[in-house]
Amino acid sequence: MAASISSLLSLCCASTFPKQLAAPNSTVIHSSTVSRPSTVNAYASTTDAIFKEEGYFTRRPILLGIGALATTLIPASFGYAEEVPKNYEAFVDLSDGYSYYYPSDWREFDFRGHDSAFKDRYLQLQNVRVSFIPTDKSDIHDLGPMDEVIPNLVRHQYAAPSQRATIFDMQERTVNGKNYYTFEYELTSPIFSRTAFATISIGNGRYYTLVVGANERRWKRVRNQLKVVANSFKMLDI
């Protein structure tokens, strides 16, 4: 995903549409560089792995700047617009073949190793991020049965050795012939817990992962809002 400044400028000048598109009649505000928050030592030691992974930087500033101007070129008939629920915005990546909704008051930020990410403007750990890796598989079913794939993924890849993983729910959905696994899980350490939804899918020669979550203390208040985000993820043909 990383590219030189000259490559980004060449890409933007060669295409009428930007890599990221906001739904028509929407406003996307791009955040500036965000610093790691000050925390007490006990909290920092518990969440250090999270902040190391998140590595806040401004994401693709040149491409985003040009993209923000180019959103006015999106035709009014762009099919995604009427589907966006109230109080959400649509993030559409035509180059990498995916889309999803995020709360309209969230702001974009850089999450290290991820292709796109948005966070609550006040609560950094309340966020959504999407990543993908190449794969030779063609469908999520190629990984195996959902009740085997998800527990293995959460317990052995999402959870750190010091964390206890709990899976609350697993669901499968099919949209336009494309299959998705969405699941709710919690990772708990002695003094910190985080709960999240994740959606995984395979298409376009890529294994996509969307994770949207919050601090466990806020989960009951925001769960339904974040479930909309998890269920909105769709692969686009590229």
Rank of each mutant, 00 (worst) to 15 (best):
M1W: 09
A2N: 14
A3F: 12
S4F: 04
L9A: 11
S10N: 14
L11D: 07
L11P: 10
C12N: 13
C13V: 13
C13D: 14
F17E: 06
F17H: 12
F17V: 02
L21V: 10
A22L: 04
S31C: 05
S32L: 05
S32N: 15
S32E: 10
S38R: 06
T39P: 02
S45K: 12
S45I: 00
D48A: 12
D48I: 05
D48G: 12
G55A: 07
T58M: 00
T58Q: 11
T58W: 00
R59N: 13
P61G: 10
I62Q: 04
L63F: 07
A68D: 15
A68W: 01
T72N: 10
A76F: 05
S77F: 01
S77R: 11
G79C: 03
A81E: 10
E82D: 09
E82C: 06
E83S: 12
E83D: 12
P85W: 02
N87S: 07
Y88I: 03
Y88L: 03
A90T: 00
A90Y: 00
S95T: 09
D96M: 02
G97E: 00
Y98G: 05
S99Y: 08
Y100A: 13
Y100L: 15
S104A: 05
E108D: 08
D110C: 06
H114L: 07
R121E: 10
L125T: 14
L125Q: 15
Q126F: 10
Q126D: 11
Q126K: 15
Q126I: 11
Q126Y: 14
N127W: 01
V128I: 09
V130K: 05
I133G: 12
T135E: 05
T135V: 10
D136H: 11
D136P: 11
S138C: 05
S138A: 08
D139C: 08
L143M: 08
D147N: 07
V149R: 09
P151A: 02
N152L: 06
N152G: 10
L153N: 12
H156T: 14
H156S: 06
Q163I: 02
Q163K: 04
A165G: 14
T166V: 13
T166H: 15
T166A: 09
I167Q: 04
I167S: 03
F168V: 02
D169H: 13
D169P: 08
M170K: 09
M170G: 04
Q171E: 15
E172W: 05
R173E: 14
R173K: 11
T174W: 04
N176F: 01
G177C: 01
Y181N: 12
F183V: 04
Y185E: 01
L187C: 08
L187K: 07
T188C: 00
P190Q: 00
I191T: 15
T195N: 04
A196V: 00
A196W: 01
F197V: 02
F197D: 03
T199L: 02
I200H: 08
I202M: 08
G203F: 00
G205F: 02
Y207V: 03
Y208V: 09
V211K: 11
V212W: 01
G213L: 01
E216A: 14
R217L: 07
W219F: 12
K220G: 09
R223A: 08
K227T: 02
A230V: 00
A230Y: 07
M235L: 15
D237I: 08
I238L: 08
